[in-house]
Design a protein around this nucleic acid. Structure first.
Lengths: 264, 264
DNA sequence: TAGTGGTCTAGACCACTTC
DNA sequence: AAGTGGTCTAGACCACTAA
């Protein structure tokens, strides 16, 4: 026998999915259900909390509990890295993204700090450096309007970026063209990438920083960027609110018997 | 001022991350902390629940609350689809995966049901069919030992699979070589794929089916498989326990200015 | 049987929003 | 001021595990 709060939550979840409560509509108030005999206030509250964790509703004091709108996922394909976007124009990849998706661009939607730090294990590993080696960390918090959507921290080897705009980031997002442009100007043209993706629960710090709804997971993206000769010029870690993004990859089915590599 | 339970949870989370409680070690019992004046039983319990949701501990009745082991993520690259694995041998992709990762293979780690169903919207869309068209749904629950790791449901157009082993799945995972082999034998050789990935909180049904720890997110994978001529021969939806997998993709940086397509 | 976490209650009180 | 969800308490009782 499932607990009382679970049964109540499942019943309400069902009603929401069947459309008995429309997005934006308010659920019965906690005290109402208590009066109807659904259980004590704590029990009903626990059920509402479960619905919140499952992403179906959001609660706030003074307002009530309303059915959450499902905003469409923003689809991230590799076209967002198109060289034409950052090499031949003033666009920065993330701005191009936004233009492509028809959303408006405003200045200062990205804050940035640059520091020389000791490489954390994952970073040292990606760059092939000993642990604790010094690297430049360029940390951004990317917002869409007032809403933070993800953090993105790029790690560079000092010899690749010292003397460039990256380490003196006054004019916004690493200046015209972003980080890839700066590397390009410094003689390091990016050629191929590896992205690694996984999801996990958010830490309480991330909940605050990204203003996440209770229980919303995050997706962590590890991106390693190589030059044609195989040198790693950037390793980046992104932490994304899960409900806002989907990642898309197209590839050929590999066939090792043919000596093909399928995907380079 | 953060609530009392949040402060307690953060304090304990800190201690766990600093290694004061080793993986597998038991946290103080709820009644202990209550006796120490950390708060009432409900308050301490709420803090423990938060730690569980954040993936740091698991609680169970009779046992106590112990620090969770972080099992290494299984990395899924596109090599798992290598034609050599399913075309030239008896291996099935998911078995090859397991061989490659050094884990043992046991029979019946995959249960399977096949049904003719009305295509859900996402499926109809992928196959280019009208909504409600009939498709074959081949649903598997994949386990590693006793532990379910993910569900995978493949949708096929009837004209592609009728008369094949897929619709009569007595001998295990779609027979020798799995679904791709069956399609290959039927004259539909798979050529390229698109994978789309996003994360979300688990539904309560998924929590039961996949035996997920409280609050663990799931990753949903949508895979569309094409023949060389662009016909969609399979659309599959996977639901994965987030803590067990990472996805890896390698690709060239696209350059539309050069007329390259970068990734096909 | 003893020990663990989990559920539930009734009620007081707090924090935030709206009027 | 009134109305919303959120926190906290004290205690009873339940469900599961281990010895």
């Amino acid at each position: 026998m499932a607990p009382k709060w679970r049964e109540l939550a499942d019943k309400l979840a069902d009603e929401i999915r069947r459309g008995e409560y429309a997005p934006g509509q308010q659920l019965p108030q906690i005290r109402e259900l208590v009066a109807e005999g659904a259980g004590s206030k704590s029990t009903v509250h626990q059920a509402y909390k479960a619905l919140e964790v499952e992403g179906l509703v959001t609660s706030s004091r003074g307002h009530g509990t309303v059915v959450r709108q499902q905003v469409p996922l923003k689809r991230l394909g590799i076209a967002r890295y198109d060289k034409a976007k950052w090499r031949d124009s003033d666009e920065v990849a993330f701005i191009a993204d936004r233009v492509a998706s028809g959303r408006s661009y405003r200045r200062n939607e990205q804050t940035q700090t640059v520091n020389l730090v000791e490489a954390p294990p994952a970073v040292a590993d990606a760059h092939g450096l000993p642990e604790g080696a010094q690297v430049y960390a360029r940390a951004r918090l990317v917002k869409e309007g007032d809403q933070p959507t993800h953090t993105l921290t790029s790690y560079y080897r000092p010899e690749h970026v010292e003397g460039t705009r990256i380490v003196d980031p006054t004019p916004g997002p690493a200046g015209r063209g972003g980080g890839f442009r700066v590397l390009y100007d410094a003689g390091y043209e990016i050629d191929h990438m590896r992205e690694s993706i996984f999801a996990r629960a958010a830490t309480s710090d991330e909940v605050k920083l990204l203003q996440l709804p209770a229980g919303e997971p995050v997706v962590e993206l590890h991106r390693t960027t190589y030059t044609a000769s195989g040198t790693v010029v950037e390793f980046a870690i992104g932490v994304h609110a899960a409900s806002r993004f989907a990642w898309e990859y197209d590839f050929k089915v590999p066939d090792s018997a043919k000596g093909e590599k399928g995907q380079e």
